[in-house]
């Protein structure tokens, strides 16, 4: 069992939890993920590690309440226990030789991009961070992102906070203004990562995306998380989760993500008590 040490609602949909997991905290690196199962009848879901403290032995996760498992997890509070919590899984993000980076986060993806930004900034790199949200109520971790970047740009779809527009608008603006990024790191919804990658391809800027497909074990066993990258089948859990955004088949990944959509909707409704 793994104890929840702290819980915060970052907005109406997004929850932050700090979990006591000393073995994972001891060696996890930005970009890696965990798989958890809330209770005996629960699903196994992958979540990227948001932060960690090796001495105190915790890792934190940030998730959006979109499916039954995340709704259930979100209903747990500090002091409650999670049945299974395994990791760190996947490869750590490779931030070496990155000196001038633009990190692009979309929604929940901002939480996942945060540890990489921190690490880059600490290593002496220049980090521009663009964070996109639908509206001001959904903005999360604004202070943390400011601290983890050289320049911070907030974007909302409706202009209720920061600048109105999607992240690619700002990214294009920054590139056109003469910023010579050696790398763009994009973490967020697949459609956002797809369009960031399309844009940076035009400019020939290396782009790393973080994939989060459906998976069961997270160790290469089920093959459910397979993606097509550069025309080859890869497993996000062991070959990733970071991949070259210019080579990922995003349309296929988006389609594969809808595999259990109907069933998920049904079980969410049951969970919420809506028949």
């Amino acid at each position: 069992m793994f104890k929840i040490l702290e819980k915060k609602d970052l907005n109406s949909e997004v929850v932050y939890q700090k979990i006591y997991a000393p073995l994972i905290a001891k060696k996890c690196e930005p970009g890696q993920f965990i798989i958890l199962r809330v209770n005996e009848a629960g699903e196994r879901i992958p979540l990227t590690i948001e932060d960690y403290d090796r001495e105190e032995g915790w890792v934190s996760i940030v998730f959006q309440k979109v499916g039954k498992t995340t709704l259930l997890l979100g209903s747990l509070n500090a002091g409650d226990q999670i049945l299974d919590f395994v990791g760190p899984l996947g490869k750590a993000s490779d931030t070496e030789d990155m000196k001038n980076v633009c990190v692009v986060g979309g929604g929940l993806g901002c939480a996942i991009a945060l540890p990489q930004s921190k690490k880059l900034l600490k290593s002496g790199a220049h980090v521009d961070l663009i964070a996109g949200f639908r509206n001001r109520d959904l903005v999360i971790l604004e202070d943390e992102m400011k601290k983890a970047s050289s320049n911070f740009f907030l974007m909302t779809d409706d202009g209720s906070a920061g600048t109105k527009g999607v992240v690619t608008v700002k990214l294009k603006e920054l590139i056109d203004a003469g910023n010579k990024y050696d790398t763009v790191i994009a973490v967020g919804p697949l459609v956002m990562m797809k369009f960031v990658s399309l844009l940076t391809k035009e400019y020939g800027i290396r782009t790393i995306v973080s994939m989060n497909p459906i998976m069961i074990d997270g160790t290469g066993m089920c093959g459910g998380c397979r993606l097509t990258v550069d025309g080859k089948t890869v497993f996000a859990c062991v070959d990733g989760p970071d991949f070259d955004g210019h080579k990922v088949n995003f349309d296929e990944a988006m389609r594969r993500l809808t595999m259990y959509k109907e069933k998920e909707k049904h079980s969410c409704n049951l969970f919420r008590g809506i028949e």
Partner: peptide, 11 residues
């Protein structure tokens, strides 16, 4: 093989 509805036996 990457179509929705194709699974490994393991999965």
């Amino acid at each position: 093989e990457s179509l929705n509805g194709v699974f490994s036996a393991n999965e």
